[in-house]
């Protein structure tokens, strides 16, 4: 009897302990959620450096926007080019050839003071120029984004492009048809694209009269390499496309442009 009583008592204790354990676990889970909530929702995103191919104004830039009057002397390595006496090359090892002319020129024409002044000027320029450059690059990027499609290939007419209710031209019908085929062959998971980023790829491709696809180029790549890859794979998978209808065929091959977004093909 005593043993049974003791057993019952221990069973009761175990039930209480189990209940306490459940409560503790629930509290722990709640604390974890609450901790995240209190510590500012999501953990701070790690620093991401996006590298894009932007040409900054410089020696290779296409259009120097500001007349760099006083900055002209920047192209002062001239003395280096002009002073190339062959004699020092004979006397000294070839490694020092590049340095020596400078020293010689500087030693003859300019003293230390002018060099210091020039150094100061250069430092000032280095301190100022990058800001202007960055501003210009940013402005150019913003303009580019505002511009819209990179070429006429992406301009649409007919239904859904302003003229509401108008019948589709054969070209548009063909475009819709091939967009549907590519869409079906296109598989990508939107979860793998960073939230908040605008992903859009402008792809131009040539369709031969028989339907085979060639010369696939990105007029504008999206920021996600994964997205770009899936787009290319979808186009490769869709080739050959249906033959180009005769009424659409202007020349031998048809060059079209498609805009890929996570929502679909435009």
């Amino acid at each position: 009897m005593n043993g049974r009583h003791a057993g019952n008592r221990e069973g009761g204790r175990f039930a209480v302990a189990f209940l306490v354990s459940v409560v503790l676990h629930l509290a722990l889970v709640a604390l974890a959620f609450l901790g995240q909530h209190l510590s500012g929702a999501a953990p701070p995103d790690p620093r991401i450096i996006d590298v894009s191919l932007v040409t900054l104004p410089g020696p290779g830039s296409p259009e120097p926007e500001e007349p760099a009057g006083p900055e002209a002397p920047v192209i002062e390595p001239e003395p280096v080019e002009t002073v190339s006496p062959p004699e020092p090359v004979k006397k000294k090892p070839p490694k020092k050839v590049a340095e020596k002319p400078r020293k010689n020129v500087a030693g003859e024409k300019k003293k230390k003071e002018p060099i210091d002044n020039r150094l100061k000027e250069l430092r000032e320029k280095v301190g100022q120029e990058p800001r202007d450059d960055l501003r210009r690059a940013l402005a150019r990027l913003q303009e580019k984004v505002k511009q819209g499609p990179p070429s006429d290939l992406y301009k649409r007419t007919g239904p859904g492009a302003g003229t509401y209710g108008a019948p589709m031209t054969p070209y548009e019908e063909y475009l819709v048809r091939i967009a549907g085929i590519i869409q079906r062959n296109w598989s990508f998971t939107p979860r793998l694209i960073r939230a908040g980023t605008v992903v859009e790829a402008y792809v131009a491709l040539t369709i031969q009269p028989g339907g085979s696809v060639s010369n696939v180029t990105f007029d504008r790549k999206s920021v996600s390499e994964y997205f770009n890859d899936t787009v290319l794979k979808a186009i490769e998978k869709s080739s050959p496309l249906p033959p180009v209808p005769e009424e659409v065929r202007r020349r031998e091959a048809l060059r079209i442009g498609l805009v890929f977004t996570p929502q679909g093909i435009e």
Binding site: E10, F14, A17, F18, V20, S21, V22, L24, H25
Partner: peptide
């Protein structure tokens, strides 16, 4: 859950 129940007990 069980191990914590045993620990308390």
């Amino acid at each position: 859950l069980l191990s914590w129940a045993i620990i308390f007990l």
